[in-house]
Amino acid sequence: MTLETATRLTEVLLALALLQQGLEHLRGPADERVLFGARSVLCLLLIAGVAQPWPLVGLAALSLAILWRFQGPYNGGSDRMGLLALWCLTLAALMPTRPWREVMFGYLGAQLVLSYLISGWVKVVNPDWRSGRALRDVFQFSAYPVSEDLRRWAERPRVLLAMSWAVIAFELAFPLSLLSRETLIAGLVVAATFHLANACLFGLNRFFWTWLAVYPAILWLQDRLF
């Protein structure tokens, strides 16, 4: 995959993810409708490939106003990954030489790998995760399960222990998927399934679309490095 193809694919997927979020905000207060209405217009320009790189620059500038509006990300980690992708794409587009464009876009791919590896590391060093207790806590009392029926999963410690180790193993092993194109694609399919499960069980739909948008960056980086 060429740098141009990968950045373009990431731009379009990210714009679609931001559009999906933006539509959700159009039912919110008036000031949100203005901010996200403007962002949606810029996303449409980005998808159309019009006046590049200015839609990206506009989106990056608007992201600061949105951060200010909510005094931080609206939806935690998913918004942070969206911001990272947006700023990496913007800086890559503004760089005067190809090596610098590669550095900016490569940073995004590297962060995607780190997002799984570090998440796995902080879990495996935590005894509560290794015993399944932490995942039990997630189902029992955290704010995330989307229904009361899901909370009953907390009564299945063996299932949660297996799920905990499956998540830890997948996250820690993800960097190994970079060994070949086939293993990377398999790793990304597993990762997308993981995000899909989180979207269904915990309502984290923004993670699913945002992480998917960044996958071209790691496909390109693997091609570039190996």
């Binding site: 992201s63 990300p73 990954m81 911001l83 780190l114 570090i118 998440s119 932490a134 997630v138």
Partner: peptide
Amino acid sequence: ALLLPALIPSWRFFDVI
């Protein structure tokens, strides 16, 4: 300052419940 944690993320999802 609000943007910085997104550009240099910690990725510590669900480390402590």
